[in-house]
């Protein structure tokens, strides 16, 4: 599903990732941990096609991301969902408009789009706030909407970068449970997090980065 071969990434000559090789199978739940600046975000961005590796190859569903042309990147991204720490919703739009955006981009019919939006919102428990304006939602609600937007296209891979970073412990547990549920339904989840609670709750494979090096790769957290 996702394979990295000796991937190295520099930012202006500064090493961010060094010689990373790994293989992630379909349906896995992968947790990226490590101190700040370790390269977690960088690794996710590389897989997402938002950055290019300086060395090495990245295969996502047998497609070489390192060689992807600029115009292919959007289509690559449509096969994935990406959830960020700061929610990135259109503040003036309603919940359903926000969630429908990926479907509009793909040119889906209104009917099908409405069905999928409702389904995604139901999965995150936000179907009762369909027509609320995004900016009035609470932090936990906003993050749920973001997750709904990320899964509305039924992505094969769901990437998340500190999705609980701005949430209190109670909400963190709820959001982590959502990711767990999404993973259980067969979506490959790859999440960067510092949060010990989330790591324990998700109970997945743990990749530990430190200063751009992959220092450990454990099947299950102990």
């Amino acid at each position: 599903m996702i394979q990295l071969f000796h991937v190295t990434k520099y930012y202006d000559g500064c090493l961010a990732l060094s010689d990373i090789s790994l293989r992630i199978e379909k349906g896995e739940c992968v947790l990226l941990t490590g101190p700040s600046g370790a390269g977690k975000t960088t690794l996710l961005k590389l897989i997402f096609g938002a950055e290019h590796p300086d060395e090495g190859q990245i295969l996502v569903q047998n497609r070489n991301i390192a060689r992807l042309g600029g115009s292919d990147v959007p289509y690559h991204r449509r096969t994935m969902g990406y959830v960020l720490q700061d929610f990135k919703l259109l503040p003036q739009r309603t919940v359903s408009e926000n969630v429908a955006l990926p479907l509009i981009i793909r040119g889906l019919s209104s009917f099908e789009s409405r069905r999928k939006v409702l389904e995604a919102l139901r999965a995150v428990g936000m179907d009762h706030k369909l027509s609320s304006i995004a900016s009035v939602l609470s932090a936990g609600e906003q993050q749920r909407v973001c997750i709904a937007r990320a899964i509305v296209n039924s992505p094969i891979i769901l990437l998340a970068d500190e999705p609980t970073g701005n949430l209190d412990p109670q909400l963190t547990t709820e959001i982590a449970a959502l990711f767990k549920a999404i993973n259980t339904r067969g979506t490959t989840v790859m999440m960067a997090t510092h949060n010990r609670q989330v790591v324990e709750q998700l109970n997945g494979r743990i990749l530990r980065l430190d200063c751009g090096h992959l220092v450990s790769d454990q099947g299950v957290y102990t």
């Binding site: 959007p74 289509y75 690559h76 991204r77 449509r78 990406y82 960020l84 955006l101 990926p102 937007r149």
Partner: peptide, 8 residues
């Protein structure tokens, strides 16, 4: 945001 969700 549009970039994030794969808009061309």
């Amino acid at each position: 945001i549009l970039r994030l969700i794969g808009a061309t």
